[in-house]
Nucleic acid binder design. Structure first.
Lengths: 149, 149
DNA sequence: TATTGTTATACTCTATAACTATA
DNA sequence: TATAGTTATAGAGTATAACAATA
């Protein structure tokens, strides 16, 4: 791979490109950075967007359940959902004495429509070339990396 | 996918699993977390390990070049290489008046042997099931996500 | 006893701005 | 003017410890 220049200067070699860990880190970073920039006008972080998607699919889900599914610690879920509630995107309703179910407000549902479109656009931007079966295989391959390894 | 429980409680659904961005984030996080734990006894972060690998392959490489290749800002490379130098893992030699070439010390090379073994073990732990062609395809697929998209 | 939600805290990675010294 | 290295600073994400209230 390392070609020579006219001056004989050594071309820089990056052995990391052969590592899947490195490729995962770089591609994840590229996708998340792109999504973060898309969400910026809405003052929403990717993690907040993922929480909204999960609440929409599971009305009255609790913070602890969200944390377990998305691998976000309870301690970090607290300020995250407090911010979403303060902005009027979600509301809390007591499930029992200690837990509260989270549900999207009308404002939250409205925002989520735009967010979904941004997410779809983000996916297309990076994986538009892949056909359906390639995409499915990639998803299955990646999922093996973090589920019950 | 959503099955019913005996009590009729709604099973929690995670629509994010169909997104490649989500799968990339979770698998990258799982791999990097595992690698970070492996490197912990050496008091080395994954980013520091990647810099050592790059310096080893390119003696007298400058901080700016490393930053451009690994997508680490110059401002963040400064304390990173200062720490590696202070620990006696790399040394600096002036290239011209403003830049310095970085090279591994004997101690750095010795450490890198262990680090390489940990990296290989980390890759195997998550992707041992994949054969060579599957692995190559995955790498190529991921690389498309972040190189000159 | 275990779980939910919370606060406080710290570390890593990332990002921008501003400065100097040199090309 | 542009680049290399540095410092200061800030924002996200992630981690642990500890606490009160509740199951």
């Amino acid at each position: 791979m390392a070609t020579q220049t006219a001056q004989g200067e050594a071309e820089i070699v990056n052995p990391l490109v052969d590592l899947i860990g490195y490729q995962l880190r770089r591609s994840s970073s590229a996708l998340m950075g792109d999504l973060a920039r898309s969400l910026e006008p809405y003052d929403l972080r990717p993690s907040e967007a993922s929480v909204l998607v999960l609440i929409d699919a599971n009305p009255r889900i609790t913070q602890s359940e969200i944390g377990r599914i998305l691998a976000i610690k309870r301690a970090n879920m607290a300020p995250l959902s407090a911010a979403l509630e303060q902005r009027g995107l979600i509301e809390r309703a007591p499930v029992d004495g200690r837990s509260q179910g989270l549900t999207l407000t009308a404002k939250g549902s409205e925002l989520l429509k735009d967010v979904r479109a941004l997410i779809v656009a983000n996916e297309r931007r990076f994986l538009g070339k892949l056909d359906h079966s390639e995409r499915a295989k990639l998803i299955a391959l990646l999922q093996e990396c973090w589920t019950e390894a």
